[in-house]
Design a protein around this nucleic acid. Structure first.
Lengths: 131, 131
DNA sequence: TATCGTTATACTTATAAAAGCATAACGAAG
DNA sequence: CTTCGTTATGCTTTTATAAGTATAACGATA
C-alpha cells in the first residue's frame, strides 16, 4: 500500500499552475539549457512543456525562463534568478512534506492499516499515462 | 493563491481506492443509513457511489458497509465497525495534514511567494465538475 | 403475493484532459 | 542568403475519466 500525495499551487479561482511536473521540467532546463531538450529527456511533448511553463509564469507572476531564439544552435532557455530560487525552495518543501505525510500516517493508522510508503507525485502534467 | 493538497491511498500497482471522496460519501451513509441517499445528498450518481465503495473495500481488504436489500423501505446500508474507525482516523489525518502543509509552506516560501491557504480536496470522485 | 425503494451491475454516452501535428518566426554562422 | 534547431502557437486528435441509462434481484410489509 502506498500513500499518494500531491501538492500544487493554484490561483484563487482554482487553476493549478505549479507542482511536481513543472518542477522536474525546470530542473531539466537548468541542466540542459533548453526547454525542448528537457521535455524530450522526460518523454514529454515540447508543446506541452511550453504550455506548462507559460501557465506557471502566468500564475506566479514572474518569468521562470530567459529564452533566446535563433542563432547558432537555434537558441535555448535558461532559468531566471527567481526561477532558480523557486526550484530550491520547492525542492525543500516537497521533501519535508513527504516525510511529514509518512510519519503522520504512521501515527494515525498504525495497527489499523498496513504500513505505507509515500509516493510523491505532483500529478501536474507530464507524467506517464499508463492505462 | 491557494495550496491544493490531495492525499489518497493506493495499491502498490498505483490504483487509488480511498481518499476524500469516499470519506465524505461514507460520512453521509453514517448519517443517512443509505448509500443512495448519501450519494444524492451530494449530487453524486448512485452508480458512481457504488463503484467507489466497492473499489475502496477491495483496496482496503475489509467491508465498509453492512447492506440490507429488500424489505420495508427497500433496504439500506450502515457502516461496519471498521468502517467507522476508518472514518475517525482518516478525519484526524487529513486535518493534521492540512495544518502541516500550510505551516510548512510558510516556512519554505515566506517572503518569496504570497501567503497561501490550504485548500484540501481529495480529488477522488464525486466532486463538482464545473468547466 | 403485489408493492416499494433499496442494493447491485453491465453497458452506453458525455466531458475533460492530455497528447500530437503543423507551421511560423528567429538569428548566428557558414 | 541559406541552413539549422530553437522558441512560439493554433488546431486537431486521442485518451482517460466521469456521468448516465437500463434493468435485475431482493424481501419485509400490507
Amino acid at each position: 500500500m502506498k500513500l499518494r500525495l500531491t501538492v500544487s499551487f493554484q490561483t484563487d479561482q482554482g487553476e493549478r499552475f505549479f507542482g511536481e511536473g513543472p518542477y522536474r521540467l525546470l530542473m531539466g532546463v537548468e541542466e540542459l539549457h533548453s526547454l525542448r531538450a528537457s521535455a524530450q529527456s522526460m518523454g514529454m511533448a515540447y508543446t506541452k512543456a511550453f504550455r506548462m511553463i507559460k501557465n506557471a509564469e502566468a500564475g506566479l507572476g514572474f518569468p521562470l525562463l530567459e529564452r533566446s531564439v535563433g542563432g547558432k544552435g537555434g537558441g535555448g532557455s535558461t532559468l531566471t534568478a527567481r526561477g532558480k530560487e523557486l526550484l530550491r525552495r520547492y525542492g525543500a518543501y516537497r521533501i519535508s512534506l513527504d516525510h511529514m505525510v509518512e510519519q503522520l500516517y504512521q501515527e494515525c493508522f498504525s495497527g489499523f492499516l498496513p504500513a505505507a510508503s509515500s509516493d510523491y507525485r505532483g500529478k501536474e502534467p507530464g507524467e506517464n499515462h499508463s492505462h
